[in-house]
Simulated scan of single mutants.
Amino acid sequence: MRKLRSTQSVNAVAFSSDGKLLAVGSGGNQDNQGQMRLWDPATRQPVGDPMASTRSVDAVAFSPDGKLLASSGYFEEQGGDYSVRLWDPATQQLVGDPPNLDNTGEFTAVVFTADGKALVCGGRPAKSFFRSSGDDDGIVRLEDLGSWPGRTVPR
């Protein structure tokens, strides 16, 4: 077994579709320090600097074409909030602004649709388009990437 070394609790992992990158989300431990980092699985070395410094990164997912990376977690910029972010793995920069998901829900799952045109976000509790039960104990949202806030996502 080959190991990658992380100094924090690992919450989420995802491979790019070509297998050349591994995204690792961590945090939520006692020191409340988390990050998202890319790794080269072949060399077992980090690629660049951590992409997010936060309390916790709870979910990560690559788009089918590998041009986008989604993350969800607690981000401390602008007063702190649970949000979903899009990143460009090549530049390791944010793509657009976090969407206003009509709530302050905690999104703990993200996945791209097979065609890469939308992002599905899941978590708890929040207003949503789709409710998982009548007592609002969970949410699922489908976000159109063509209308991502602050920037048109290149497709």
Rank of each mutant, 00 (worst) to 15 (best):
residue 1 M to I: 10
residue 4 L to Q: 10
residue 6 S to Q: 15
residue 7 T to R: 12
residue 7 T to A: 12
residue 8 Q to H: 13
residue 8 Q to M: 11
residue 9 S to A: 13
residue 11 N to S: 10
residue 14 A to C: 07
residue 17 S to V: 08
residue 17 S to N: 11
residue 24 V to K: 05
residue 24 V to I: 13
residue 26 S to K: 14
residue 27 G to K: 15
residue 27 G to T: 15
residue 27 G to S: 15
residue 30 Q to V: 09
residue 30 Q to K: 09
residue 32 N to V: 11
residue 34 G to V: 14
residue 34 G to Q: 14
residue 38 L to F: 06
residue 38 L to G: 07
residue 44 R to E: 09
residue 45 Q to K: 11
residue 46 P to H: 03
residue 53 S to V: 11
residue 53 S to E: 14
residue 53 S to N: 12
residue 53 S to Y: 14
residue 54 T to I: 12
residue 58 D to H: 09
residue 58 D to Q: 10
residue 59 A to F: 02
residue 60 V to D: 08
residue 60 V to M: 06
residue 63 S to I: 03
residue 64 P to H: 13
residue 65 D to K: 08
residue 66 G to Y: 06
residue 66 G to L: 05
residue 67 K to N: 11
residue 69 L to N: 02
residue 70 A to M: 02
residue 71 S to Q: 04
residue 72 S to L: 05
residue 72 S to A: 13
residue 77 E to Q: 12
residue 79 G to I: 08
residue 81 D to V: 07
residue 83 S to E: 13
residue 83 S to A: 13
residue 83 S to P: 00
residue 84 V to Q: 01
residue 87 W to G: 04
residue 88 D to W: 00
residue 90 A to W: 02
residue 90 A to F: 05
residue 92 Q to R: 15
residue 94 L to V: 04
residue 94 L to T: 01
residue 95 V to E: 00
residue 95 V to K: 03
residue 96 G to K: 00
residue 97 D to C: 03
residue 98 P to Y: 01
residue 99 P to C: 01
residue 104 T to N: 05
residue 106 E to P: 01
residue 107 F to Q: 08
residue 109 A to F: 08
residue 112 F to Y: 10
residue 114 A to T: 14
residue 114 A to L: 14
residue 116 G to V: 10
residue 118 A to W: 07
residue 120 V to K: 03
residue 123 G to H: 10
residue 123 G to M: 11
residue 124 R to S: 14
residue 124 R to Y: 14
residue 124 R to T: 15
residue 127 K to T: 08
residue 129 F to E: 11
residue 129 F to N: 11
residue 129 F to A: 09
residue 131 R to H: 13
residue 132 S to M: 14
residue 133 S to E: 15
residue 136 D to G: 15
residue 136 D to H: 14
residue 138 G to K: 07
residue 141 R to Q: 12
residue 143 E to M: 10
residue 145 L to H: 03
residue 148 W to D: 01
residue 148 W to N: 00
residue 148 W to C: 03
residue 152 T to K: 10
residue 153 V to Q: 01
residue 154 P to W: 03
